[in-house]
Design a protein around this nucleic acid. Structure first.
Lengths: 121, 121, 121, 121
DNA sequence: GTGGTCTAGACCACT
DNA sequence: GTGGTCTAGACCACG
């Protein structure tokens, strides 16, 4: 499983891990039941603290994206297509509403803002 | 000059002040050379610390939106229309690029994302 | 009498005035008994507050460089050559000792430091 | 690591800390990657506020002398000999140019000024 | 346990 | 009476 963290990124290490695994689960790259690598392995390979890795796993757990079975590790949870789609949209909500509120307070129209988004993608 | 802060807002007080003054300068409601109220006056009227007010003033200063003369006061800086427009667009950059990177990693197309933005505005 | 103040200078306005008059007295350009322009005149011509001008005059007074005669204005005080020379050297003391202490703490030798001073002048 | 602050000094506490660490990094006494003590530890040991200590750390950070990783600590940055020498000279620039401008306006020659510097060191 | 953010206010120099 | 400097500390995110 490919995972990486940039040490000097403004995005905290645990969030980088979370985002990568999240995207792989949503996209189907990681299938239901697939085993996540052990926390200690990730910790060693990426040269980061086990606490950091655990934070990422915890976040995935609390979102219901993975399940942990004591003694045997963590696995991708069973998620319906609809549920995956819901999570995917939900993950876009925060940046979406932040952009909207900024655009509103600066007086940009919906069309202008949408245009800038298209240009950037 | 109208200014207000909501104490329970997730947006920090100094940022609320910054945003309000920013909008008033960009819109031309506050003209070049106009005096900002003394930080202590704002502090008293809004019931917040002078330091909080100063944080807002400092941010405006570092963006070149105001000029401050010790012992005399703070004044709206001279800004061309083009400069104001540049600052207005710059203020949208961060939320814009955050949305873009989230959309990319989640596999949303430019059209889809732009559509969601339009819906929200 | 030539006087000027740069508004955006890091050196406070009153100090700029003080320095200019100080230098003119020490150099003999302003002779003993010469009249300084009235505070209000300087204030108007330079577009600064009378309080600022008065601060400069006060500083010159307390150094014994000028004398004020109520109702008739301020005049360059009588100073011997020796006294002028003493004041001239005294005015260099602060920057001199600050350089010395900085040089010491950074481990520069006397020769190195002197050389840099020569290069700069 | 030895650090100290004199409470009654005219030099602000944060500057005293900055100067001491600066000197230890430039001299090589603190090597690349060496961990600085946590700000709270320094705060307690010297009996000053964590904020004062942080001010010193912030100044070192903005000069690129240290790197700080949230949750982990602050470490001496990687600096080449040439970079260290550049920073050492830069630290002398302000007192140097202040002396130069004072000497110029008072009519001291380069040789005279250099001589006074040598005498003082 | 680590640093970062936000809020805080006395004191001072300047006008 | 104005802003600037210095010192201050609770709270939070991160590791």
């Amino acid at each position: 499983m490919r995972l990486s963290v940039l040490q000097n990124s403004p995005i905290p290490a645990y969030k980088q891990l979370y985002d990568q695994i999240f995207a792989q689960i949503i996209s189907g790259e990681l299938e239901t039941g697939a085993a996540l690598p052990p926390i200690r392995t990730v910790s060693k390979e990426l040269g980061i603290s086990v606490i950091t890795v655990r934070s990422a796993w915890d976040a995935l757990l609390s979102e219901g994206l993975i399940e942990t079975r004591a003694g045997s590790g963590s696995f991708v949870a069973e998620l319906s297509r609809a549920e995956k789609e819901r999570l995917r949209r939900k993950a876009l909500q925060k940046p979406l509403s932040e952009l909207a509120s900024a655009a509103r307070s600066l007086g940009f129209t919906a069309a202008e803002t949408a245009e800038m988004v298209k240009d950037l993608l």
